[in-house]
Structures are given as structure tokens and as C-alpha cells.
Design a binder for these strands. Structure first.
Length: 108
DNA sequence: ATAATGACGTCGG
DNA sequence: TCCGACGCCATTA
């Protein structure tokens, strides 16, 4: 049954997979949109971003950033608060996570 | 069928 | 480092 004709409110398979990965990211660690697509060996960074746009509020969305360690303008404030509270290496000046220090590869 | 869109990524200036 | 131009690809118009 293709997602295109699935009218239920359930998240499509790809979205569920993305959300599951995000739930596994440890506190103070982050993954990029591209990292997630690569980890799943499915989809692209843009598609992962689309999933966050639709279901992001259900997970720890601030632990997913772009390849430069940033998030879109409208989310930076909330994200910064979380980084501060969970101790994520964060550059307050440039409003971006220090990827070199806390990028997570998916291993435990 | 065609075109615009978007929580992206890479590269060149 | 910063920023614009492009490439990318499923979804939406």
C-alpha cells in the first residue's frame, strides 16, 4: 500500500524510521540531516528535513542540525536553551553547535 | 505534465 | 569565514 494513498494519520514508514533514529541520539550529541539519511541508507538530507518539519515536535528535534551545526532562524532560540541545559558544545556567538565535538555516529 | 518548494549539502569566490 | 549558486529529490500546486 503506497503512502500516497494512505489517508490515516499514522506517520509513513520513512518518517517513523527517521524519528526512531532521533530518539536514540544521546543527550549533548547531535546528528546532521545527511547523517540520518546515510545511517538509514534511505532518503536524502532534504527528505529528513521534511520529516522534521512535519513530526519534529514529537522528538528531540534540536539534536538534528544541518552540516554547519545550525537550525533555521525560527528555532534557534529554543534550540539554544536546550543545548545550554544539556551541555551540548555550542557557539553562542554564531548560534551553532560545535559539530567537531559532539557529532554522533550512531554507535553506542 | 510542468513548475515551485523546502528544518539540505557542497563548492567557488 | 561568509555567502550565493547549484544540485538534489519527494511532495505539492
Amino acid at each position: 500500500m503506497p503512502d500516497s494513498i494512505n489517508r490515516s494519520a499514522e506517520a509513513p514508514a520513512f518518517a517513523r524510521a527517521v524519528l526512531d533514529v532521533i530518539r536514540k541520539i544521546p543527550p549533548a550529541k547531535v546528528m546532521t540531516y545527511g547523517d540520518i539519511a546515510e545511517f538509514l541508507e534511505r532518503g536524502t538530507a532534504r527528505q529528513v528535513g521534511a520529516v522534521l518539519a512535519g513530526y519534529g515536535s514529537e522528538v528531540t528535534w534540536w539534536r538534528v542540525v544541518d552540516s554547519t551545526g545550525r537550525l533555521p532562524e525560527h528555532l534557534r532560540g529554543e534550540a539554544a536553551a536546550n543545548y545550554l541545559s544539556e551541555g551540548t558544545p555550542f557557539d553562542l556567538e554564531r548560534e551553532r553547535v560545535r559539530l567537531r565535538a559532539c557529532r554522533w555516529d550512531g554507535s553506542e
